[in-house]
Amino acid sequence: MKKSHLIGIAIIAIAIGLLLSLSGDVSTYSTFSQAMKSGERVKLVGQLMKDKPVEYDPAIDPNKFSFHIKDSKGVPGRVTLLTEKPQEFERSESIVLTGAMEGDVFVATEMLMKCPSKYKDEEIIIRSKSKQI
């Protein structure tokens, strides 16, 4: 057998092995009920509920930020994020959280927000020079 064939076989074997192990790192976005059931660290996607309180008081704890979201099934739930409150949080369209359920609160350590681009909305900035002075 030629060496190049051996190398080829080895490559294919490694590739299959890697692809199989790759799938273990992948999951679908979870919901509150699934996160509750599994108890594991999951990714949760949802939308901010703007009518519910958003609590952040850095003077008490700069690493505790609470709010409510609706998950992809529309089920509301409470979230505590263990970081500072990011800028433009209220503008977010959708939120992706990484964390686990702790009681009935989803405690997250990471968050990614999708915000509408600042310059996308078609509004025009009018000069705000006051004419009175």
Partner: peptide, 18 residues
Amino acid sequence: QQGLIKGFSQEQYKKNVV
């Protein structure tokens, strides 16, 4: 930050101070 979130093992994620 002591005891703010009880029994939670993710203290290392707390990165900020006032």
